[in-house]
Design a protein around this nucleic acid. Structure first.
Length: 545
DNA sequence: TGAAGTTTAA
């Protein structure tokens, strides 16, 4: 135990009110004892948001004390200020990329000043870490290319294309694609698939289809595989109409296969246009394909969504009669919907029916079962299923743990929730934001501020960053528990991160502060909200120039 | 890495 540590956050630079020193939204934090802040490296500056008075903060025993600094991981690189980063080059490059850059060229220049060498693993890690910051990612990408001993892998190119597409930098993306064309074997169907997905996601359906039309220009074959990829992308991006148009245009040139029809059936079922799905099914027959379990399951899912369980039943029977029995996916859908419709006994009956038909349950099925049992308040039964899983050969995954933890939190089984988090870690299952969100909410409700701090720190250690929704849960929870100072601190952190708080969060906080006559804090929150809204406006005007 | 299913807060 160390005397009176205080939490400091590392905040180095701002751009339009945005904190730049976190990667993928992860804010790097460090801990130091009161009166020892001069021992902090110069890149560490305490922020007002984190200047908490948690004098009794307990340092978790799994942390090491390194030269006056508390680092959440075994190794702490005090020179470059990275936590949990063992690879020195990764640390150096991360540190540089945390700067304020307007153009990729600036990033290249900054990286030229360091003596790190690019490697496949370095580029891979950095592209993942900066996948939401195309300027940094592309700068690093360009810098790596200047080294004559290094060549980007096809995967690195694909990742870069994907990042540029995700952030809607389509001109730059196309420039990179042209560069890829010059090297043989670089462009693959994976590249094309990423491009089509990002274009469709941005509402540029015509462009996505154009990629398919011109795919031979890139040395690829415009076959049924490629067409199915496009159709699937269009359906998943909610433009099944465009998928249908492409299908009609090309079906005489490129003979469709069973996948083609299933993709369209699923697309139409998801869009609640069952008539269209049925015509595709007929067309499927005309092309000599029988509907398979996947085709039927799409319809089953649609009926389930309408809670039309009579139709579900008759279709299940029809499937059996047609020699196409339902499989584990079909059963999962039906059971899940029955459970959600509060027909828990009928849902359990599906499990029995499944066993009778010797259909083997898998992890997703068990996850669904655990979910509906928990929602019905049958936590003990859910726990039994959790134990049954390992015995039956399907191991729990992240969804299993997330579901169990959320249920325990909802039913005020705090210890059990924290125990599950521990079990999750022990089993080597990687936690994510959905693991922590209910736990954080629970801590706010119970006013467990120390545990809240511990969990937040745990998240930093695991590279899991808070998003706006999670921040909102915390702020709402703290308001309800009348932990108003804490609530204000989190509100400030949201704005510092460049996020814009929801109006409901803002209104709630202002209301509570007003009721408690905390005028100064109220004004501060109002200023912060204004700052957040203004910085968004200025960002917008910049992007339209 | 060719088609269907499970956890989501304000």
């Amino acid at each position: 135990m160390f005397p009176s540590p205080r939490i400091y956050e590392v905040i180095t630079r701002f751009r339009q009110g945005k904190v730049l020193n976190f990667c993928n939204g992860v804010m790097y934090k460090c801990f130091c004892n009161v009166g020892e802040s001069d021992k902090l490296p110069d890149w560490v500056k305490p922020s007002s948001a984190a200047d908490s008075q948690e004098d009794d903060f307990v340092i978790p025993s799994n942390m090491n004390w390194v030269g006056g600094l508390k680092a959440p991981d075994e190794k702490f690189d005090s020179k470059h200020g990275s936590f949990g980063i063992v690879d020195n080059d990764v640390a150096i490059v991360t540190r540089i990329l945390m700067g304020d850059f307007a153009m990729p060229e600036d990033v290249v220049q900054a990286l030229n000043g360091c003596d790190s060498c690019p490697s496949n693993s370095l580029v891979d890690k950095m592209l993942k870490r900066f996948s939401n910051d195309w300027v940094c990612a592309f700068g690093l990408f360009k810098w790596a290319q200047t080294n004559i001993r290094y060549k980007h892998s096809a995967d690195a190119y694909d990742s870069m294309v994907d990042i540029l597409g995700k952030l809607k930098q389509f001109d730059i993306m196309w420039g990179l694609v042209e560069e890829m064309v010059k090297v043989e074997g670089l462009i693959s169907m994976r590249t094309m698939s990423k491009i089509m997905r990002r274009l469709a996601g941005a509402g540029r359906w015509v462009d996505a289809v154009a990629v398919f039309r011109e795919v031979e220009r890139y040395g690829l074959t415009r076959d049924i595989l490629c067409m199915n990829l496009l159709l699937d992308t269009l359906c998943k991006e909610r433009c099944v109409e465009h998928a249908q148009d492409v299908f009609l245009e090309f079906k005489n040139v490129i003979p469709p296969d069973q996948h083609t029809f299933n993709i369209l059936i699923h697309g139409w079922c998801k869009a609640r246009r069952l008539d269209n799905a049925r015509s595709i099914m007929e067309d499927m027959g005309d092309h000599g394909f029988l509907p398979c379990v996947i085709s039927y399951t799409s319809f089953i899912e649609a009926y389930c969504r309408d809670k039309d369980f009579r139709k579900v039943d008759s279709l299940l029977n029809e499937m059996q009669e047609n020699g196409c029995p339902p499989n584990i996916v079909t059963y999962t859908i039906v059971m899940h919907s029955l459970g959600k419709a509060k027909e828990t006994n009928e849902a359990m009956e599906i499990y029995e029916k499944m066993k009778r038909n010797s259909c083997v349950p898998d992890t997703s099925f068990f996850n669904s079962l655990i979910y509906i049992l928990s929602k019905a308040g049958r936590l003990q039964d859910a726990h039994k299923i959790y134990e049954e899983m390992s015995r039956s050969g399907s191991s729990p995954n992240v969804t299993t743990y997330n579901t169990m933890i959320a249920a325990a939190c909802e039913h005020s089984q705090e210890n059990s929730a924290l125990k599950l988090l521990h079990e999750m870690e022990e089993s080597g299952c990687k936690a994510d934001l959905k693991t922590y969100a209910p736990l954080l909410k629970m801590c706010c409700r119970k006013k467990w501020i120390k545990v809240l701090s511990y969990l937040l720190n745990d998240m930093v250690r695991k590279d899991i960053s808070l998003d706006l929704g999670t921040y909102s849960i915390i702020i709402h929870g703290l308001c309800k528990s009348e932990q108003l100072e804490k609530a204000c601190q989190f509100f400030e952190e949201v704005v510092l991160k460049g996020l814009i708080p929801f109006n409901s969060t803002f209104n709630l906080l202002v209301d509570v502060l007003e009721r408690k006559k905390m005028e100064e804090a109220k004004r501060r929150v109002q200023d912060l909200m204004m700052q957040a809204e203004n910085s968004e406006k200025s960002c917008r005007s910049v992007s339209f120039v």
